[in-house]
Design a protein around this nucleic acid. Sequence first.
DNA 1: TATCCCCA
Length: 720
Amino acid sequence: MLTPTDNDYGTRPEKVPERRGSLWSDPEAEIRNLPGIGHKLAKKVVEDLGDGSAQAAIVMVERNPYNLTDVDGIGFKKADRIAREAYDIGPDDIRRHEAGNRFILEMRGVLNEREFFAERVKLELRDQNLKEHGVELEEGHYWLPEELDAELQLERWMRGLPRGEALQLADLSEDQTAVLDRMGADDQQRLAVRAILANRVLCFTGGAGTGKTFCVAAAMDCGIRQRWSARGMAFAGKAADRMREALDAYGVMAEATTIHKALGFQKKSFTVDVLGEKLYVIDEASMLPNWLLWAVIKRLPEDAHLVLVGDPNQLPPIGYGTPFVDLLKHGAPHVHLEKNYRQQDQQGILHMAEGILNRSRPAPAECVEMHLYVAPANLDSLFDSLIQKHGGPDYEGWQVITYTNEVAERYNLRAQAIVNPGGVALFEYPLWKLGTGERNRPLYHAEVREGDKVIVVKNSTTLGIFNGQTGRVLGLTSKAKIVQRKNSVTGHWEEQIGDVMPHLLVDITGREVAVPEDEVEKFIQLGYVITVHKAQGSDWPRVIVMQPGKVRDDTARKFFYTASTRAKNHLCIVSGLRVVAWWTNAATDAPDVPSTLMKRLAKAKPMFPCLNCGTPVAHLPHDGICWDCVSSMEGGLLVDPADLKDYEPEPGPEFDAAIERNGHARPLLPSEWEDVKHSATPATWRTLRQSAPVAAAEPHQTGEDSERIAAQFRALDVVW
DNA sequence: TATCCCCA
């Protein structure tokens, strides 16, 4: 079955070769002629599977046709059809089961046995002996192995974290105080900076407009003043770009990139093994799925500080897991900014957002327009009048936000008809969500005209544009296309001059960007109306939230909260629901079911006394030494070897190897630890006898200290 | 049962 994303609807190969066997002279044609693959997909197959070589791609496909699922735009079903029709692969081939099992879990996350079998039946995966191929079964649940590993590792890492009471505050040097004075930080923000500098791991939360980014920039600057190196990261390109702008604006000497870039993402994996900086700040952390957060944590140097900045009330990650929310629930060190700077003049929007979170209806306010219980027949005309009132040529000034792409596509056409009716049409793209007609063609197309408001829908490093940025179409120009080619000798990517072709000129945040004609459809769409996911991380003076019906219960509150808080001065809400139904929907959140990670953490684990300070902790990450001790260690461990003879670390090959190298089985000095830390997993070292003797305990922080700090924060309206 | 991210 063809999917709506298969937009190879027009072109067919000009020449149809007669037989596959005679095609070795033209391997690309062979790929193109596979069932369900056309021109465009064939190119991607060659690029993704063969690294540019069609011959190599064919070898990959012949070895295992299900390798095709690695190509963007090819799922299990399309690969399966090719495997069975073109390569005679039987229904119970191991490769088929492996790909099918993985496909199911890639779509659905973690499934129990019954759910998993139901999905297998749908894909006609019948042989029960092959039900675990490519996936892992753990206590009645099926997992992708890498997903299970990420979660187990996160669990281990979280058990080793200080919890709640361990929030610490750094003292600021004169230099640092001067920085904060110059930046104009208030007391709340100063405390946040001190917390960032003092805690190895810190969650940093606050709603839109509470100045999180400001604090982060200030903290990074202060870090740099004490000779730390610092780096900002974000999941999304646009968020990284915003952070970079903020750092530039405050004159902070630190880079900000996507996580993928920082970890050296290539093809399907990360190439950076250990990160080199001292302070890492991840923005929009609520967007991180388990695997990605773990990918960062496992690469952190041991003395690094990690700050996770986010708003747990915003939209959850697309992938599996909600590690940011889990960390907060688990009680990791946490600073919350309460005071809102941005919406101080527009308290109505703030109260609206609070109302959605707290299930309370705020008093009516001038800056919040509610249009509820709108009859379906009147939705369009109401929309039109709102655009006439709040829309206009100042595209930076307003934005319509929806939940689904279908609604976005529909109302983009209406908004365009009002705002830019007479612009010259420059190109068009298919509106797949508005339905498909015969022969799988889209029913509607959108015209992009001169003067239109547009949105970037995909990052391009070549063009320097990011998914989610909005802009204005300036016109057309003709110039040579710049293409990125991999130099076959050096292996580096290089910019080369390609064919001369028309380019679409777009003004994006004040910069003129020329998008080559053949890539416009990939990068540019109408931007009057966008989905909430694309709006995340941006704000506009006037926002219209256009959502005719109910939003699914488990997402509703996050959708309305995120969408409403995008507005700085004026907010319009449009819905067909009655007043009570709307408020019920808007305040409905997913039932508070603990994530699988939280369930793991809730299970009791044996406690072990730290060899250095004696504090019992569930996990001793550093060879019997707790996190706090290791982090405060400069010269070496103060452990008397005589006290250690009764310890019995867990046996195993890694442990044996480590003993052999070191000649003993006691916890290691930091210098020794350097030698074995890469080969001995912490799990190998962690099992210690509970009755073991312990060095004199000296807690790192008394209850009094933490109470004093808590009081300081409370006094400043900061919750932690 | 919808949403969507990442690179050389």
